[in-house]
Amino acid sequence: MSRSVWKGPFVDGYLLKKAEAARASGRNEVIKIWSRRSTVLPQFVGLTFGVYNGRKFLPVLVTEEMIGHKFGEFSPTRTFHGHSGDKRAKRV
């Protein structure tokens, strides 16, 4: 069952402050966060967060498609190292 609309999305308060500060500074830096439970909000689009997975901070570049998901979804706690094959990476 989805969360009640009147409650709004859950976000840890410190994360909002950090995001605001990063946007105000204009610097292109990774914002380190531990709050995997927080929802990705529209004002986070374009920012890069380092989401802690229990061992390290994984960079999460927020895009519009990610709005409404939780940060933890993009920072897996168990990593499978596969073969590279013909896979490609795009530098954005």
């Binding site: 890069t48 960079p59 570049l61 895009t63 990610m66 795009k90």
Partner: peptide
């Protein structure tokens, strides 16, 4: 790539790495 952009894992040949 965990769904939020490509990531390079950098470190020495063994031991700690960073993303």
């Amino acid at each position: 790539n965990f769904g939020a952009g490509d990531i390079l894992e950098i470190g020495a040949e063994s031991g700690a790495t960073v993303m």
